[in-house]
Design a protein around this nucleic acid. Structure first.
Lengths: 131, 131
DNA sequence: TATTGACTTTGAGTTAACTCAAAGTTGTAT
DNA sequence: ATACAACTTTGAGTTAACTCAAAGTCAATA
């Protein structure tokens, strides 16, 4: 692979995006990325489009979107233009969930900031005020 | 329970904080909250302090701090004033992780915002530009 | 053309964090 | 005092998302 113009091997994608090959195959198997382009021998040969799906999966999973939602999104995508509204709904719902999570995260970070400031004094004075 | 001045039963705490009783017992068993005050009969009778620990556990878990870290924190807490620095380190490390997660979350929300705006046009025009 | 290393599939195993079940105990309402 | 719900403990089961293993296939090199 490399004699003619091709995409990337699974190993190259794995290294570029720091996702184990096993996980890339898993993503394809369960359907959060479409079936990847193959060489005549049946070996995965990721096209730019394939890679865009990988990138998308990585980003969405990193934020905690469930596999289920990503499967549903790809399914709708492959059903074509009649599913614009359904895809919009799905993405909106997931955004709502992320916004809630963001709020919760902020709360906890604030709480941690507070505790940390207390411990910073405590380390200096030897006495912990509150908590 | 209620004839004399007491704390809350596990059921009351469960309902107040929307945490299943099973999970409250689990938290105590693994050590992310200290052993709860008991009635002479051995039944849990949550004091204000106990409840503060529950609240803390709920907040930290909601943000995704691992049980392991919370167990370690409580362990240090119970070892006394000699562990201020260790507790500070632990909390700082966890805050770092949350800040990273926050960054990732923002990225993904932005990406979703972008996609959603595309789909909003698509639903109106019947044509999806990009993606 | 034979070896070697990366690839393939299918299916089982792992991990974190619960969640439930079984069997026994407690306390409150009649 | 007796029934009955709510409690207890111990230990097993569940879920999501990987992660690994086994056994076979392919392709670049000597």
């Amino acid at each position: 692979m490399g004699v003619v113009v091709t995409g990337l091997t699974i190993k190259e994608v794995s290294e570029k995006y720091d996702i184990p090959s096993e996980t890339l195959r898993y993503y394809e198997r369960v359907g959060i990325i479409p079936p990847v382009t193959r060489t005549p021998g049946g070996i995965r040969d990721y096209s730019d489009e394939d890679i865009a799906w990988v990138e998308n999966a990585k980003c969405m999973r990193a934020a905690g979107l469930p596999i289920e939602a990503l499967i549903e999104y790809l399914k709708l995508f492959r059903e074509g233009d009649s599913t614009f509204q359904a895809r919009l709904d799905l993405l909106s719902e997931q955004r709502e969930l992320l916004l809630e999570r963001q709020k919760q995260l902020n709360e906890t970070i604030n709480r941690l900031n507070y505790k940390i400031s207390k411990y910073e004094s405590a380390v200096k004075t030897g006495k912990l005020i509150w908590d």
